Every structure is written in C-alpha cells, then in structure tokens.
Simulated assay, not measured.
Amino acid sequence: MRKQEYSAGMVKLSFWFSEFCKVINLINQGKTLKEIKVLNLEENLFAAPTQDRAIQIFNTVSNRVKSLDQSFYSLFEQSDIATQKIINLIAIMKTDSLFFDFVYEVYREKLIIGSDELADSDIRIFFNNKQLQSEKVAKWTDYTLKRLGTCYKTMLMEAGLTDRASGIRKILKPILDKTLEQHLRDKGMELMVHALTGVR
C-alpha cells in the first residue's frame, strides 16, 4: 500500500457512512463522480448545513470511494450493513496513512494479545511514538492530538469495532465477511485483513 504523508486533517472529517452509501449507489446507477459533484451543488445531496460543508463532504467521500477498486462498488451493494461499514472504514484507512497505522499498530495488536479494551493511554502512546518517528507529527499540539484521538475512537465505534463507552472502550472484533476478505486478498490488500482481524 502506497504511503501518503501523515495528516491531522481527519479532525474536520466524519465517518460519513450514509454519504458514502449514496455516492456508491449513484455510481452503480451509472453516474460519474463529476455528475455527482454537480448534483451535490444543485440538490445538496448530503443535507449539509452550508455549501462549503457540502463541498467538503463530497471531496472527502469521493476520495474514499476512488481509493477502492471499482469491483468493490457492486460488492458493497450486495453486503449487509455491518460489512458496508467495514468497507467504508477500509476506504478511510486507504486515504489516511496515520489512521491506517493506528488501526494496524494499536487495534490489531490488541486483537493479537487478546485484549478487549482500548484506553486513552493506548492512543497517547501511539502518538508519542509517531512524534519520535515523524518531524511533522512532532510539531502538532497536544490539542490537535487529543482531537485526532477522539476522532479515531469515533471512526472505530461508527464502524462497529468498539462500543460507545466513555473512557475505556470495549473492542468488538469484527467477523469479516468471507467474500470481502477474499476480495481484499485478491486485490493485494492483505494488510487490511490483518489490521481488522488481528493477524501477525
């Protein structure tokens, strides 16, 4: 998987599952992303409070959709909601290297050692390590890192990978749909399978 530069941009973003569903649904109906972009401006597809937010949602969600091979689109529509949420999470991981590292290095490690708890201290340790590895992350403020940590917890919870508890969250290991797992392997995305199922 090609590594992008680390970014704290996710603090302004959401899981946007229904928006992701809507874009894939329109693509499967034969619409292009260019046409969906126009529709979004004309009809406020995502019921955004402002046009700026509508544009931001479209740009983010369309990047997530484009990060996946087109063969995922029909698979998405044939899948149950739990699997669709996992596919959305995979697209988020594909478009944000730091979040991918978090799921791979923290969530996966918890599954491997058999721990079912995700604590704020786990997130702090992750960011401390990244600050040692990356000059860019080292420059981020504690406030940014705290917001990013909250965002990461929300993404995992929305995808069904943790519960909603405040404080320490319970990890819910996903049962990866066999068709999706095989599809990820066929597309050379085994690391995603490992990250989500806790494989060394």
Rank of each mutant, 00 (worst) to 15 (best):
W16K: 10
W16D: 06
F17Q: 06
S18A: 15
S18Q: 13
F20I: 09
C21D: 07
C21T: 12
K22E: 08
V23L: 05
V23P: 00
L26A: 10
L26E: 06
Q29W: 10
G30R: 09
T32E: 02
L33S: 05
K34I: 14
E35S: 05
E35G: 05
I36V: 04
K37G: 06
V38Y: 07
L39H: 02
L39I: 03
L39D: 07
N40Q: 07
L41K: 15
E42M: 05
A47K: 15
P49M: 10
T50L: 06
T50K: 05
T50Y: 06
Q51H: 13
D52I: 15
A54F: 13
I55E: 01
Q56S: 09
I57H: 00
N59R: 15
N59F: 13
T60V: 10
T60W: 11
S62Q: 08
V65F: 11
K66F: 15
F72V: 00
F72I: 05
S74K: 14
S74A: 13
L75Q: 03
F76V: 07
S79Y: 04
I81E: 11
I81M: 10
I81S: 10
A82S: 11
T83Y: 12
Q84T: 08
Q84L: 07
I87S: 00
N88V: 07
L89V: 08
I90E: 01
I90P: 01
I92K: 09
K94M: 09
D96N: 11
D96K: 02
S97C: 02
S97Q: 13
F99D: 03
F100A: 11
D101Y: 03
D101W: 05
D101M: 04
F102K: 11
E105T: 08
V106D: 04
Y107G: 03
E109V: 15
K110H: 08
K110I: 11
L111R: 06
L111T: 05
I112H: 04
I112V: 14
G114W: 08
S115L: 11
D116C: 11
E117T: 08
E117D: 07
L118T: 06
S121K: 14
D122P: 04
D122I: 01
I123L: 05
I123C: 03
R124Q: 06
F127Y: 03
F127H: 02
N128A: 09
N128T: 11
N129F: 09
K130S: 03
L132P: 02
L132N: 07
E135Y: 12
E135Q: 11
E135G: 12
E135P: 09
W140I: 06
Y143Q: 14
T144Y: 06
T144F: 05
K146D: 04
K146P: 01
L148F: 05
G149C: 08
G149L: 01
G149F: 01
T150Y: 15
T150I: 13
C151H: 11
C151Y: 13
